[in-house]
Design a protein around this nucleic acid. Structure first.
Length: 872
RNA sequence: GCGGACGUGGCGGAAUGGUAGACGCAAGGGACUUAAAAUCCCUUGGGAGUAAUCCCGUCCGGGUUCGAGUCCCGGCGUCCGCACCA
């Protein structure tokens, strides 16, 4: 046995063996219980980064553990291969998106393979491959048939110089990133998926996802944003309405505050605003101004709140003489509710800011408990809490809930024309999913526009609608649209001249069903074989970044429902267990000129507050900056290849799991990696020592104290690690393995020249357990150790060891003793001692007697197996 | 702006409402060595004390409880998402 473990040599050797024996290839007809573990597939950006290493290591640990526990594990990998960066590369570097993407896939696949992941590569898919996206096109047509895909006008970021649509990330400070032109909002006809048909269901089903993080469910709940409110039809003063409009419909959840109303506000693209603008050039200019920025919600919310009085007056539903001014406001969205609100400034901060700016005043109508109604005033902080209605005529004295009920009842009962002026309504914040993208590198939307026959689906026999390879990328905009011939086709119905849809699908569509495709990726006829999909799905454990907590996960949940409706799968929820991992972060470094410097070029010296950094090449001193998410722009990245080359994949994997809880950020540090590297060598030495004690015979009937200590340490570690892997608490697994290996090393250190038979057996058992415990995290080292222990099998195929429960229980237990909540002593009692016996033992302690000073205690709290507290 | 999280030694972190700091890193001391690396052993939250021991301590301010890092209310700070980045 070699003294030092040579990771580079061993890792390649074992990877080759795993590969030759195809041990990670999963069969659909394997009778063992299934377990589907999936990590979010990567975008092929060029090279893998540390975030991938972390993500895929976690999944791999679970996959290997579940395999050892006797499951048929599905652990596939693929490529989220469509998207903007490929087109940017095409424009900047004159490489075709397809070539660029497939080159990246080849590189990254090789990188992933050096990590030693137990992936079934025979199921690999790339979303940019026609064999994948033709099924997506089929499903689009299925969705179209059942009314889940439609066309709708949507706002996009328009670059008026490049004459192209921009992604939000391409809008920087309100300007196009290439042209620098001020971006405008422009409406375009877009394809949408009717996710809102499932708003209530997507919301309700969150309660069944009990293996999802609460925070993710909460974020989705808020994103869906169900609110119960009232639709109110305000009459308009006919003298003021621009084109004979008689009413304005608003949605509100605060109808209790109707008597605090000071104004109405409508969205700039509300029909009433448009009508008013037709007669008022200044208003038209104001509306045009509100469109002179991107479509991102953050911009709309953070920009200065502005309004323009249209001159239109609305009539209060409870008082025909009460007129309210109607403003066009830049913070009202046409997409939410009816695109119009009434403003009650006293109880809504945004409305209050608005009236304070335009001098409209406010009247408080909800008085907080304990406040005097007469003196209660609002100046610049709105009150949105509970209270009693005031200044509200017939509502005075009611609670908010009572007032809402009363208002709803009265307005429902009152009619104008032949319908009531109030109507209870449930509203959702969730909008339909716009999937049209004006780009080349995406899945073509399979429809044809015929001037005579309208919008037609591409016939099934013509699928896939494939991207043309001979596109050019020398001008901004959609290369598909620019292509000289591609879009020109004959109408499938009348045979006349028609045009293909040149929009492609949002890449979120690609990633909304890949998990189902993995269950039968060879299927050429259909997206899935529902039998196989239903056998494998749902994914038992899905792992990925929190940044996908809302959109990707919600879209996938919708898409699965839509696939069910169109017969491709038999369930609603794709992911039974969800885990959101934290980011990989690193210190940042800058030179004197303020330029970012990559960690590999920096040398760190000194510890404990005296750390300083210098540039290796020149010795120039470098400023150590804050720890931030690894990013190319700040150059605080570490290349996984470098790490694996220097330390080996196992070290990288181990360190990724060891330092932080998996759902929190992990700081990549050179010291930490070195520590992991030392531990790999330490394990190798320990196993070497175990291997050196003579081979184990038959299990002895009894064990000496020494041997029992070893056995207890092994089984305690086994119990703890098993529990923690199942709960994805990998950092704790690591700590338990450290603890156990320390105990084993200590036992080995005190072994006589010829250990007794029982101790030999116990040490051997411990060695076998240790190797199998760390195998999921460091599979290559584990194989090497397993072989060194004399086994002829692969540890990757071994069963998880069984815990001997008897070794976990002690006959006595030491309880901490508190006096008035502060720990003052310990007491050791038999494990099964009753409360009375424990109390008696505690009261007999000197420390307790002294504290009580002869008096009897006020109270003694005995928490069995945990603690005793004496209240003096 | 809205929504969500997080905040514990020099550092990463551990702790079903029950002994705060497991485990690791870093640092200091020692052993081995001609020397270094590697390895092994010891110390390590702050303060007082020869010691036993005591006091303080989980971002800040309140509260609930026999007992709060953990629960509640109010701040401060950092990070993530916001619908065309993936």
């Amino acid at each position: 046995m070699q003294e030092r473990y040579n990771a580079r040599e061993a890792e390649r050797r074992w990877q080759k063996i795993w590969d030759e024996r195809a041990i990670y290839t999963t069969r659909n007809d394997d009778p063992r219980p299934k377990y589907y573990v999936l990590e979010m597939f990567p975008y092929p950006s060029g090279r893998i980064h540390m975030g991938h290493v972390r993500n895929y290591t976690m999944g791999d640990v679970l996959a290997r553990y579940m395999r050892a526990k006797g499951h048929n594990v599905l652990h596939p990998m693929g490529w989220d291969a469509f998207g903007l960066p490929a087109e940017n590369a095409a424009m900047e570097r004159k490489v075709h998106p397809k070539a660029w993407t497939y080159d990246n896939i080849a590189t990254m696949k090789k990188q992933l393979q050096t990590m030693g992941l137990s992936l079934d590569w025979s199921r690999e898919v790339a979303t940019c491959d026609p064999s994948y996206y033709k099924h997506q096109q089929k499903m689009f047509l299925d969705f179209l048939k059942v009314g889940l895909a439609e066309r709708e006008k949507r706002k996009v970021n328009w670059d008026p110089v490049d004459m192209t649509v921009l992604a939000n990330e391409q809008v920087i400070d309100g300007r196009g990133w290439r042209s620098g032109a001020v971006v405008e909002q422009r409406e375009m006809s877009q394809w949408i998926f009717k996710i809102t048909k499932y708003s209530q269901d997507l919301l309700d089903a969150l309660d069944t996802l009990d293996r999802w993080p609460d925070k993710v469910r909460l974020m989705q709940r808020n994103w869906i944003g169900r609110s119960e409110g009232l639709l109110v039809r305000f009459a308009l003063d006919p003298k003021t309405s621009p084109a004979g409009e008689s009413e304005l419909k608003i949605f509100t959840t605060r109808h209790d505050t109707l008597f605090g109303a000071k104004f109405m506000a409508i969205a700039p693209d509300h029909p009433l605003a448009q009508a008013a603008a037709a007669k008022n050039p200044k208003l038209a200019e104001f509306i045009a101004e509100t469109k002179r920025h991107g479509t991102a919600q953050e911009i709309i919310d953070t920009q200065e709140k502005m309004g323009f009085d249209t001159g239109i007056r609305a009539i209060h539903p409870f008082d025909p003489n009460w007129k309210l001014p109607v403003y066009v406001a830049n913070f009202i969205l046409m997409e939410y509710g009816t695109g119009a609100i009434f403003g009650c400034p006293a109880h809504d901060q945004r409305d209050l800011d608005f009236v304070n700016k335009y001098g409209l005043g406010n009247t408080p109508v909800v008085c907080p408990p304990g406040q005097d109604a007469k003196s209660f005033v609002i100046t610049d902080v709105a009150y949105d809490g509970e209270g009693t209605m005031i200044n509200s005529r017939f509502l005075d004295g009611m609670t908010i809930e009572q007032a809402k009920e009363e208002v709803a009842k009265r307005l429902e009962g009152e009619t104008r024309g032949n319908s009531s002026i109030g109507e209870r309504q449930v509203n959702f914040r969730l909008r339909d999913w716009g999937i049209s993208r004006q780009r080349y590198w995406g899945c073509p939307i399979p429809v044809i526009h015929c001037p005579k026959c309208g919008v037609l689906p591409v016939p099934d026999k013509d699928l896939p609608v494939a991207l043309p390879d001979d596109a050019t990328f020398d001008k901004p905009g959609n290369a598909l649209d620019h292509h000289p011939t591609w879009k020109h086709v004959n109408c499938p119905t009348c045979g006349g001249k028609a045009q293909r849809e040149t929009d492609t699908m949002d890449t979120f569509v690609d990633s909304s069903w890949y998990f189902a495709r993995f269950t039968d990726p060879w299927n050429e006829k259909a997206p899935t074989d529902p039998k196989m999909a239903d056998a494998w799905m749902p994914v038992d454990q899905y792992i990925g970044g929190v940044e996908h907590a809302i959109l990707h996960l919600l879209y996938s949940r919708f898409f699965t429902r839509a696939m069910k409706k169109t017969g491709h799968i038999g369930m609603n929820e794709p992911f039974e267990g969800m885990f959101t991992q934290g980011m990989v972060v690193h210190e940042t470094y800058r030179d004197k000129a303020g330029n970012w410097v990559i960690p590999a070029e920096v040398k760190i010296e000194g510890g404990e507050g005296a750390r300083r950094a210098t540039l290796i090449k020149t010795g120039e001193s470098i400023e150590i900056g804050p720890i931030e998410k690894m990013s190319k722009s700040k150059k605080n990245t570490v290349d996984p290849d470098d790490i694996m080359e220097t330390y080996g994949a196992d070290v990288a994997r181990w360190f990724m799991l060891s330092d932080s809880p998996p759902d929190r950020d992990v700081i990549w540090s050179e010291e930490g990696v070195q520590g992991a590297g030392r531990f790999v060598q330490r394990l190798w030495r320990i196993i070497g020592e175990v291997a050196a004690v003579s081979a184990a015979g038959i299990q002895p009937a009894t064990f000496s104290d020494d041997a029992m200590m070893v056995r207890k340490a092994a089984h305690r570690a086994l119990a703890n690690v098993s529990d923690d892997i199942a709960r994805l608490r990998f950092n704790r697994c690591v700590a338990h393995i450290y603890e156990f290996s320390n105990a084993l090393a200590e036992a080995l250190g005190s072994v006589e020249n010829v250990p007794s038979a029982d101790l030999t057996w116990a040490l051997r058992e411990a060695g076998d357990i240790l190797v199998r415990l760390f195998h999921p995290m460091m599979p290559h080292l584990a194989e090497e150790c397993w072989a060194a222990l004399g086994h002829k099998t692969l540890v990757a195929g071994e069963a998880w060891p069984a815990v001997e429960a008897g070794l976990l229980v002690e006959s006595t237990i030491t309880l901490p003793v508190q006096i008035n909540g502060k720990k003052r002593a310990d007491v050791t009692v038999p494990r099964d001692a009753g409360k009375e016996a424990v109390e008696a033992a505690v009261l007999a302690l000197d420390t307790v007697k002294k504290a009580l000073d002869g008096k009897s205690p006020k109270k003694v709290i005995v928490v069995p197996q945990r603690i005793v507290n004496v209240v003096a």
